[in-house]
Nucleic acid binder design. Structure first.
Length: 419
RNA sequence: GUGGGCGUAGCUCAAGUGGUAGAGCACUGGACUGUGGCUCCAGCUGUUGAGGGUUCGAGUCCCUUCGCCCACCCCA
């Protein structure tokens, strides 16, 4: 027996409907903000992520699915979206039409130990604003992020923001922090000790109680940011709060990907579950060979959203019909009637049972709203019987009358699918 | 990579200290042969995740292995 590979998932009905609903709703919000979809390949060159995410990052060091193709090219299954967007934007010459407001949605891959809300093949919804370094742009992006989450039915949302400053500010702060922590080196947790030389900022994220105690008196990034950076962060908080969002600043918020500069943020739902994150990356595009171009973006973890979302955002099961045809009805008549019915309502045929009762039972188990009965009698009269399962009432209709009968349902259901 | 929990029918789960693998749901048929939901009756479903060991005898004890879940790490 074959099994799905570790960390992957089959999304079955009815859960797949939930995924569809979330995707549809987010696309609608993106459209309202005039963001357009960019679809990039799942396969990317290995080097792209070494350059962008950072060669010392965990993602590159141990989490990428790498493969070598038949010509010896070193490829990876994309572990995140921003680098691909940057690559595509540069490669297709879109830097001449700034600003760009793009979104994407799809599978990503990281070789990690699976756990709640985390898979090896996971799905992100992301957006990037490229070629805009304004405060307004940041406000809009975070507002967009929260609007998407709200649209899919998430309510208890909170966004935490911080600034990592520019390159110089960050280096200065990193040094100060390292110096402070070095004094406590022997008391720090094992993980934190390892990070002390490589990436002391990450220690700020530690959940070890002793570390947290030590960090209480550690220097704050806020002391190393210039007035403009701080001002800007405060304004961002002000505007977003005025829009009704819950925003707070946390000088300890850092992100694990190297390309972030300036603003970083994270969205927490239902208390402290992190479901989305992002930030500004003003140097990435230049780093990847484009001209210097500022940019901000975010990514939402689909699996985490699916976990939290109220399952009943799925549109109530759209009405459908089951055709029950007696076994002596010529098959061509059955196909013909099916085709007619399907112009008006989603329809499937019941398997042939000995008794019509079984067939109706089958239909009701399948949640059909209507049962269409076609037997010898109906055949000779060119009619069908339409039974409404909820009420049990039944009508004899001529075939030409079917359209009118299902007209109301047609508009309600087909319309929705078309959208 | 580290630590913990768990693998028994399609699903949810039983099976005191080792002693004939079971129930509910689901499914199929019948009571009811052109009209569902209720009820009753009958039937179907298994290398107990896999491999090895101890034993007269292992779902149960021991070892190995695989898988799933959870936490850490990291991140969405």
């Amino acid at each position: 027996m074959y099994k799905r590979v570790k960390g992957t998932k089959d999304i079955l009905p009815p859960e797949s409907s939930l995924w569809q609903a979330i995707e549809e709703k987010t696309r609608k919000v993106f459209a309202r903000y005039c963001f357009y979809e960019l679809r990039t390949p799942i396969l990317e060159p290995y080097e792209l992520f070494v350059r962008s995410v950072g060669e010392g990052s965990d993602i590159v060091l141990k989490e990428m699915y790498e493969l070598v193709d038949k010509k010896g090219r070193r490829l990876v299954l994309r572990p995140e979206g921003t680098a691909s967007v940057a690559r595509a934007v540069i490669e297709n010459g879109l830097l001449n039409t700034l600003p760009l407001k793009l979104y994407y949605l799809g599978p990503f891959f990281r070789y990690e130990r699976p756990q709640k809300g985390r898979f090896r093949q996971f799905h992100q919804i992301g957006a990037e604003v490229i070629g805009d370094n304004s405060l307004e742009g940041e406000v809009e992006l975070v507002d967009l992020l929260l609007s998407v989450l709200k649209e899919v039915g998430l309510d208890d949302l909170r966004v935490v923001v911080n600034s990592l400053g520019d390159v110089n500010e960050r280096i200065e702060y990193t040094n100060a922090l390292r110096e402070y922590l070095a004094a406590y080196e022997s008391k720090l947790s094992k993980d934190s000790r390892e990070r002390l030389s490589r990436n002391p900022l990450r220690i700020l994220d530690s959940k070890d109680p002793v570390d947290i105690k030590i960090l209480e008196k550690a220097p704050s990034i806020l002391d190393y940011l210039d007035k403009n950076s701080i001002n800007r962060l405060e304004q961002l908080i002000f505007y977003l709060s005025s829009m009704g969002w819950k925003v707070e600043s946390d000088p300890r918020l850092v992100r694990g990907i190297d390309y972030y500069t300036g603003l970083v943020f994270e969205v927490l739902a239902c208390g402290d579950l992190s479901i989305a994150g992002g930030g500004r990356y003003d140097n990435l595009i230049e780093e990847l060979g484009g001209k210097q171009t500022p940019a901000v973006g975010f990514a939402i973890g689909m699996e985490r959203v699916v976990d939290l979302v109220d399952k009943n955002i799925i549109d109530e099961d759209s009405a459908k019909a089951v055709l029950v045809a007696f076994s002596d009805v010529p098959r061509m008549e059955v196909f013909d009637l099916l085709a007619t019915l399907r112009n008006f309502i989603p329809t499937e045929v019941a398997p042939s049972y000995k008794s019509i009762g079984k067939a109706i039972k089958w239909a009701s188990r399948r949640n059909a709203k209507f049962v269409i009965i076609l037997g010898e009698q109906e055949l000779s009269e060119r009619t069908v019987k339409v039974k409404i399962l909820d009420s049990g009432s039944q009508y004899t209709l001529k075939r030409e009358e079917l359209g009118a009968f299902f007209g109301g349902y047609y508009e309600k259901n087909m319309d929705r699918n078309a959208r």
